[in-house]
Design a protein around this nucleic acid. Sequence first.
DNA 1: ATATCGAACCAATCAGGAAATTGGTTATGG
DNA 2: CCATAACCAATTTCCTGATTGGTTCGATAT
Lengths: 234, 234
Amino acid sequence: MVEPKDRIGNGGQAALVQLQAYLAQLDLPEDGRLPPERELCESLGVSRGDLRKALDVLEKDGHIWRHVGKGTFVGSGPIEETIGISEIARQTNPADVMRARLIIEPEIAREAALHATLADIAAMRQSLVQTREAATWRQYENIDNLLHRQIAQASRNNVLLGLFDVLNAVRRTVVWGRLRSEGARPPADHHSFADHERIVDAIADRDLAGASTAMRLHLQQVGRRLIPLHEAAE
Amino acid sequence: MVEPKDRIGNGGQAALVQLQAYLAQLDLPEDGRLPPERELCESLGVSRGDLRKALDVLEKDGHIWRHVGKGTFVGSGPIEETIGISEIARQTNPADVMRARLIIEPEIAREAALHATLADIAAMRQSLVQTREAATWRQYENIDNLLHRQIAQASRNNVLLGLFDVLNAVRRTVVWGRLRSEGARPPADHHSFADHERIVDAIADRDLAGASTAMRLHLQQVGRRLIPLHEAAE
DNA sequence: ATATCGAACCAATCAGGAAATTGGTTATGG
DNA sequence: CCATAACCAATTTCCTGATTGGTTCGATAT
């Protein structure tokens, strides 16, 4: 008496063996998709019913997942291929974004201090000069964005860089529409100038703790300038 | 004598004023898109040429951005609405993913200790029980995933939750294909059981530093088990 | 001559739908 | 019991037409 959970006929059992052998010798096409059932059952020389029984076993064990219209894939389940930025942005607020920045960016700066190349540092220094030369707030913000991203890039960790890009996109969406006073340009004694230089200097000096601290202090300054705008609106 | 940079006729100058007034009174349709030029120039009563000159000025100042076939939008530039998980995964490796986890998840656990509701903690406790009951590694991993996500959810910061989801999707893509020995189940003395309990206990005790440290130690344990698999393959 | 406006045209993008593909199900026949 | 075929619904693919910012041309006015 076979256990009731995998009541599978002899044909299905044989197909399962063939299928497992096939999967072992197969080089997967990058997305883990395998041929449609109608092709697969023919190339394996088994009936579609038996093939499906074998696939049922593999699916229940979590080795593959299937979806009608899409196909059959190896893996534990359908992973979200894309994340919607606006979807995240819609469910949050500037304070949470700032909190997330305070958590992530100092650590990114620390990694940058450890892994930055000389070319990375040179690029940051150039951005530092450009921020001071910015003629409008808009230009300044663009270069400021670039500088922060250069730091993330210098971490030489593409996962951190990707997370930074997501966070940045969310931030830009959340604060969308907030325009600074037009025509004006950042004052020469804007705190960010000195903040940025401290961060880059620490990275260039390979001062891990200093880079992290400088970034944290910088973001806290930015946060302090951000909150009053909200309180004033109430 | 007008400055040479904005050589714009009188008609264009007038159109610019009208356009700015129009933008000021407009409630933007959620995505910042404004009517096509052919409609806008007619509703403003200016020629399309003048309208385009005015739009050129706004675009150079960074107030709007345009793309043929898409339209004209307010904002500093086209923000990436979606980010591709597999794109990040293709440019990275398990070590970078682990490093990113070590940076982010302890801080998420700290936030969770600060913001978790009693319902959050109860859900975690239930997951703790289920991890011990898991009959296969696959089931265990699913519940383990759920527990870590519950912690991220308990941070009550949807940005952190979104970043966690991105990181998790990348991780699942990067380690794709690595299968544990089948049939086996996690041993009763698996380190993660105690690790998880320490994390949840610290969160329940509102012990911020404890939650962060427990999560960091847990991930370092996981990392130590991960690396040997790579060295053994060489 | 010069400038400006309207119209037409261009290439990139989007919108909609028909046709093909695919996992899931049912019927038929041996 | 099972292999085969036909059918179903979800999804993708492909194509055509419309839309849109960018450009050019000719008429007209100043």
